[in-house]
Simulated assay, not measured.
Amino acid sequence: MQSTRWAQVWMTIGLLWFLLAIAFAPTNKLYQQGLVAFLWLPAMAFAWSARDRLGEVWRAQRLIYLALIGLVAWALISLLWTNVEDPSREEKRLLYIVVFLLFFPVFADARPERMIRVMQWGGLGLALSALVAIVKFYWIDGNLWWARLEGLGELAHPILGGYVIGLAAVWMVHWVPRARGLQVVWVVALALLGVFVVLCQSRGAALALLLSVLAMPIWCRDRRRRIIAVAALVLAVLAFWALQSLVVARGVSFRPQIFVASLQMIAEHPWRGLGLGADYKVFAEGQYFDHAHNLFSHIAIELGLPGLLLWCVVWFAVLREAWRARESLYGQGLIGIWLFSFLAMQFDAASLNGTPRAEWFISWLPIGLASVLAWTRAKSSACDKIPRSS
């Protein structure tokens, strides 16, 4: 049933809604309702008919899903001692995450190229949102050019907006359309995404984007990717030269001090943590910060070392699966997505179980996309078995 045309249209709308409505939806409530209608419902409705596909993913990536099951189970147990007022909300959010991850193998249906195509359109849509945001922020709202750019909708935060737009730039630079006409549009879109990241002045997003592009020739050994990497380095040097005063003005934004304080909090509750969704503040340099500004330390604060270990197993197993498929276009794109996300979550991301938001792009989206690797590697193995004619 998941292979029928109407089902694929329904799920395509769902994935595009997740990628684009975070910028274009007028309210967060509408964004969440759209995800329920276009993404969660079809994932659950077609899960049974796609059970053979889900079985293939389970057999190919058992380590990832065993660790995920362990992480969800430990998170549920931690609700016994968390300080949240309504633990049922945290349970519901965990269910959202599970269904979100279920969506990707159901939608892909053993066709990685389908996922690439929708992600390409999503990247173009986010580039359009970047253009609209630039025009609105500097021309319509009349902000000075050195003010930190804010995106649209839920991306109206310089840091989170920079992470989402930067990640879109990463998958766009890996997944180039084949048609020459679309390649012109792709170049313009990639430029808009890059300009947005620079103008939002999120140093974490800019550094993650730069390092991801510079490292790209390691797994994409072709001339075009090397040229892109060199061009990115040159542009980065020019951008730093032009914006040096803005880049260094904010120093390190207390990140080292916050990290040290976070380690102290982890040491106080190393095994159980504070519990899933616990409300906490990090005290550093005489002031309180809302979170740990680092996803790994945030998980350790909430779920203790067992939760951190399970998350690390999931996260680095995704890299292992992507690296095994590095000869494929899909695998190369996922390595880039993983690297950008890994770097980005070191600087500001600190939400693992919140409702769908910008942070999901660098936490749960790479894990969801990784499920499709089960068929990428299977197709590569099948091609290797075909005898070559002399």
Rank of each mutant, 00 (worst) to 15 (best):
A7Y: 02
T12Y: 02
I13P: 02
F18G: 02
F18M: 09
A23D: 05
G34N: 04
V36S: 01
L41T: 12
W48A: 12
R51P: 02
R59V: 10
R59G: 08
G70V: 08
V72F: 14
D86V: 14
E91K: 10
K92F: 14
V99D: 07
L101N: 08
F103W: 13
G123C: 09
V132R: 05
D141S: 10
A147F: 13
L149S: 11
E154P: 01
L155S: 03
I159P: 01
L160D: 12
G161K: 07
A169M: 06
G181W: 14
L190I: 06
A191D: 08
V197I: 08
R203W: 05
A206N: 03
L207E: 06
L209S: 08
L210N: 04
V213E: 00
P217M: 05
V230G: 12
L238I: 13
S245I: 07
A249R: 14
P256Y: 10
I258F: 05
S262C: 08
M265S: 07
M265L: 15
P270A: 09
K281H: 13
D290Y: 08
N294W: 05
N294L: 06
F296H: 12
L308G: 15
W315L: 07
Q332E: 04
G336F: 00
W338L: 13
F340I: 01
F340T: 00
Q346D: 03
Q346C: 10
T355F: 00
R357W: 06
E359R: 01
F361Y: 15
T376H: 02
K379W: 11
D384H: 11
D384T: 09
R388S: 14
S390I: 12
